[in-house]
Design a protein around this nucleic acid. Sequence first.
DNA 1: CGTCAGGTTGAGGATGATCAACGAATGTGG
DNA 2: CCACATTCGTTGATCATCCTCAACCTGACG
Lengths: 264, 264
Amino acid sequence: MNNSARDRVIVMTQQQTAAVTGAARHPFVEKLNRYTVLCNEEQATLSSLLARTRTIHRGRDIVVQGRPHQALQVLNDGLALRYKILADGKRQILNLVVPGDLIGLPACMFESAIANVSSLTDISVSTIEYKDLFALFHRHPRVAIALFWTSAREGGVYIERLTTIGRRTAYERLAHLILELLFRLRAVGLAGPASFEMPLTQEMLGDMLGLSLQHVNRMIRNLREEGLASVEVHKVTIHDMDALVRLAGFEEIYLSQARIPGLA
Amino acid sequence: MNNSARDRVIVMTQQQTAAVTGAARHPFVEKLNRYTVLCNEEQATLSSLLARTRTIHRGRDIVVQGRPHQALQVLNDGLALRYKILADGKRQILNLVVPGDLIGLPACMFESAIANVSSLTDISVSTIEYKDLFALFHRHPRVAIALFWTSAREGGVYIERLTTIGRRTAYERLAHLILELLFRLRAVGLAGPASFEMPLTQEMLGDMLGLSLQHVNRMIRNLREEGLASVEVHKVTIHDMDALVRLAGFEEIYLSQARIPGLA
DNA sequence: CGTCAGGTTGAGGATGATCAACGAATGTGG
DNA sequence: CCACATTCGTTGATCATCCTCAACCTGACG
């Protein structure tokens, strides 16, 4: 916990730099750059791919289950949710999409999308046509490797959620989700050391965790009464990090964005 | 459902061809070749990467949670399981690994492995060092694209399992798993039109579905009594495919291995 | 001022876990 | 060949976690 405040300051500084230098500094480029140091040309090519951005208001569907598509999209700013709707109307929220993420991964890698993505806030996105993606693989293999690496690591989030839903109690599930959100948002400069803004309703939390909204409400009360964390309207604050980590069985390694080993 | 038997025949023929031409025809190469047609040189490079194989007996751990590593492995033959063990000993099985799959995906994309993989049968594996993988990205961008595509589609299996565990009843979960196993095994020539050999215990099924083994047993009995499917010692047979698909809410698209759109 | 989304709380009930016991099949050592 | 252990499957009884139904509260917004 001691150096997390410092970490955050560094991230925020990067964000501010981005604001100064304009769209060239882009969360997606930043992320790939964390996997392996990219040269100027590589960064320039990526930036030009992402140059044209589009703004979408909150609550709009960006990707729709069953619909075909011919491009991937990158989230530049704001938050989105990936989810699936079952035939009987039940919803499973798969993941939170944060700036720098590929929106259509993995939903858009099929003939028609296998999941929905909708904007949780107003967002800014860039589109990468498949043909441009393929050209990128030919021109900049190192970028391709970084891309491969990120998308493979995405899988880590899913397997962790899977074990959370499959094998943890409701109380543990909520604790684990809160910690995951904290760490993922912190990595993109959107959270403090032990708190973050959260535009998720209790119904959404339930749909992420396989729980009813009423039960989420009770587990939130539990966390508050036990002094572990408080979940208010749009803000989550962690009061006892150690206890929460212990309760959740949380291990942050699956969210790591460390260098790719052995890549020059 | 009508042409699935025919599809299988084609796959089986490919497998037989493999037996004739020897190790050069490899399930991993076959799979990438289904994503985009690879030229001879591309296939040759891949095959040489996979030439050295290693046999591992059943019940051995190939990848161990928390342990570092410097290579990916490819499963050539046999079956394996990816799983996580929690601090209190509970186990969540994440996925079945079938021939042609990258074993260490996504577990080995981190500084230390975030999940275990163990052999379910005697298996044959090839090792791909990271440096060889990187070289492949430089030499054969089209292979890299196919690799990116497969690994991204892996995510589809996880999000489907996630919605299954999060939002379906125990009965539906079992039905869905049986169908997924059938279709995945059929894609590698290891299942008939409506049946397959299954070396999974009821405890393992429970650990895949977030259920207790006793409850799995009862749901299996249900399926049998309703005439939908029978799960015997090491063999699963589906008796009423339509009803099972309806019960599970199963949509096979997330297992598709169709061509990558727009890739020459 | 009415409506609506979101949050809060309680009561009752169902799904699925846990505990417990037993049977069948397989393997092992004597 | 038998005694024994072990693994896997089967079934019943009880119990708890979590769902469903229902009601009410609050604040925001037209």
